[in-house]
Design a protein around this nucleic acid. Structure first.
Length: 433
RNA sequence: GUGAAAGUAGCUCAGUCGGAUAGAGCACUGGAUUGUGGUUCCAGGGGUCGCGGGUUCGAAUCCCGUCUUUCACCCCA
């Protein structure tokens, strides 16, 4: 019986696995150099945990199950609630600020489409317990640090930054009631994705006040914070945004970001700075998004401690990297350091050992030195073995032949074809350095 | 959850007014080549044409269902 692959999942054959590892290794490397520590939680959590924060809609997009004791569990669709739970559990003993990162494997029962699958990896970085905008700057910088590291320039991507707090202040100034803020956010978030007329229509239906609609539209047309400040007066939230941008400038990524009040983020829990990163050339969905969420720990039964963070999935990123030609798969697949071939026509050496037994012994020796080494399983001609070495992407091929009667090896560089005869012990010494 | 397109060898695909043993390139395996590889040449293996049902003397081809994939919408933690 043929068993098909599960919808929206991927098989990682060695070439795909090399890509996945390359992406994740980069995430970890850049997180560490920016001062983040790695954590992880379980793949299963109580279903309740996601229902608390998210409501029925999200629960519908969850893979949930019952264990044998009748407990309702869910496969994690995100790791932020787990993070909140873990931090809350040890809040009194954790030194602050908490700068943690994780690369969890997540599942969401959505319909798969371009850049979105049912199982994926997501890089998360979070800073908990630091109100200062420097934390937000650190999150954005770390994200850009990675994208820049793998070869994406300011010509390729743009960080669109806004602030929920600033948005709330402006809308309040315009006269929008507190109660309609959340539904208005949802509309503003779509501004960049909808044709102008549709956007206007949605505003009309929501606000039912032509004066307010035109003010909101005028606000959305403004191009920078100075203009907004000019129109609505100086607000606390502006200082925060301006401060963030100054920090990003001094961190050397001033050409990567742009203020964009169309960035709101779909989720209700964001409270301050929000940002998303987009590819400039294509129509891909956001590469990543993040922001400040000051109520999350409290919502999970903890103290009122603020947090700011970012999440980046591997699906969109990989599509983007392929489009830009930044994924050199042949480069990623690391082959063998040494392939050891032996001359099968030699029955045995003076010490009664066969070329094959010498090859096996040498392989074990080199492996102890952490070299990637292999020997063919097939008893076949030297030509075939060299062919196998080439197929295995070996850097060098060692040949055990008549030279071994004087305890010497032939070491062949597979790229150039050059080969030299080296003393066995001298070769080992050289490898051990 | 809604809509559209597609599914033939491991991969990319050809093959349809319905016709007998279903093809190519690449990949894989073996040989040319028992002490020298990636090129070349020769040969070989591999398919119940996604699955199920229907129409027909006869289905990869037509019809229905189903699954999967892709794309768009909804949503996006």
């Amino acid at each position: 019986m043929k068993i098909p692959q599960v919808k929206g999942t991927r098989d990682f054959y060695p070439p795909q696995m090399a890509v996945r590892n390359w992406i994740i290794d980069g995430w970890k490397r850049v997180s560490l150099r920016n001062g983040f520590e790695e954590y992880d939680g379980p793949i299963l959590e109580h279903l309740k945990m996601y229902q608390v924060k998210s409501g029925d809609e999200i629960v519908e997009q969850l893979f949930s199950l019952q264990d044998r004791g009748g407990r309702e569990l869910a496969i994690r669709p995100e790791i932020t609630p787990t993070l909140a739970r873990m931090v809350n559990q040890q809040i009194n003993s954790l030194p602050r600020p908490i700068k943690w990162f994780s690369v969890p494997r997540l599942c969401r029962a959505e319909r798969p489409q371009k850049g979105r699958l049912r199982e994926f990896f997501q890089w998360n970085i979070d800073i908990i317990g630091e109100d200062d905008v420097r934390a937000d700057a650190d999150v954005i910088f770390t994200t850009v640090d990675y994208l820049r590291d793998i070869g994406l320039t300011a010509n390729d991507i743009v960080v669109k930054i806004s602030s929920r707090r600033m948005l709330a202040a402006v809308l309040k100034e315009i006269g929008v009631s507190e109660g309609s803020l959340d539904s208005l956010y949802a509309v503003l978030d779509k501004k960049n994705k909808l044709p102008g007329e549709t956007f206007e229509k949605m505003l009309d239906e929501l606000l039912r006040d032509s004066g307010m609609v035109s003010k909101v539209r005028a606000f959305m047309e403004l191009e920078n914070i100075q203009q907004i400040e000019h129109m609505f007066g100086r607000q606390e939230a502006f200082n925060e945004l301006v401060g963030l941008m100054k920090l990003l400038n001094s961190m050397g990524i001033g050409d990567y970001y742009r203020f964009d009040q169309g960035i709101v983020r779909g989720l209700a829990y964001y409270t301050g700075i929000v940002f998303e990163i987009y590819d400039k050339a294509s129509e891909l969905r956001a590469i990543c998004g993040g922001g400040r969420y000051d109520n999350l720990l409290k919502d999970f039964g903890g103290p009122a401690i603020s947090a700011t963070g970012m999440g980046m999935g591997d699906c969109v990123l990989e599509i983007l990297l392929r489009e830009k030609g930044l994924l050199d798969v042949t480069e990623l697949e690391k082959g063998l350091d040494y392939f050891i071939a032996y001359v099968p026509t030699i029955v045995s050496f003076e010490d009664n050992r066969t070329p094959l037994s010498v090859a096996v012994e040498l392989a074990a020796e080199l492996r102890r030195m952490d070299k990637r080494v292999d020997v063919s399983y097939r008893l076949t001609g030297l030509g075939k073995q060299l062919k196998e070495a080439a197929g295995r992407n070996a850097k060098n091929c060692i040949i055990i032949g008549d030279e071994f009667r004087e305890r010497k090896l032939v070491v062949k560089d597979m790229a150039t074809g050059e080969q030299e005869v080296v003393d066995y012990d001298e070769f080992l010494g050289r490898c051990d350095e």
